[in-house]
Amino acid sequence: MTLKNTGWKASIVLGGLLLAILSIGLAGNRPVATSVESEVDRPPSGNRQSDRFAKVRLVDHQGREVDFYQEFVKDKKLAVNFMYTVCKGICPGMTANIKRAREELAAKGITDICFVSISIEPDKDTPERLAAYMEVNGIENREGISPWVFLTGDLASIDRLRKSMGVFDRDPVVDADRTQHGGVLTFGNDQTNWWGATPALQPFGGIVSTLERLTQVRTRNFPGGSTMVPLGNLE
């Protein structure tokens, strides 16, 4: 649909060709290995979800300016929620759940999902305040656990990003009401193009299993996939 999409596909085809050439070279007469395209399985939708994301520049909790798409989305695994530091509604619960889920995922060896919390009250949530929020909530970035970044910026950019990620209400009154703001964790894997959202307020175990299932790269090489009975009724 867009040039970017075409480029992405072209690079995969190219990669597949390279791999095919390599495997011919290495394996002699053996059949050509399956291409990368068929090994990494994607949903059959052709639109790249992240093409829809607003391309905005934001500021992280260390005061560093970041290109949201380049830094957190492109070819990466991501889990995003929208919050603000003085929220007395759903944010404390969301933060606690995400924190616990991130730890549980690390215990399962999953340390490559970038968690991003974005302030919807960015005029008040300065980088210093976000850093303090992290400290108060015991959120630290270290080896062996997925990174977690807090972002602020200008409200218009954040609103655009939020809406482009499907976190909005079609009722403008509800959408503008911060107490009713989206309590979902929007996640995805830009390589597999599988995206989704799950409530951040559910028991953390649900977040863990959903992220574990749907952010990981899937293949369709099923070693145990052979069946006991030959198929008799396939077209």
Partner: peptide
């Protein structure tokens, strides 16, 4: 559908 014949499906449209 997209122009290339693939499905257009917005995985973040929860409506």
């Amino acid at each position: 559908f997209n122009a290339d014949g693939t499905f257009y499906y917005d995985m973040l449209d929860h409506d």
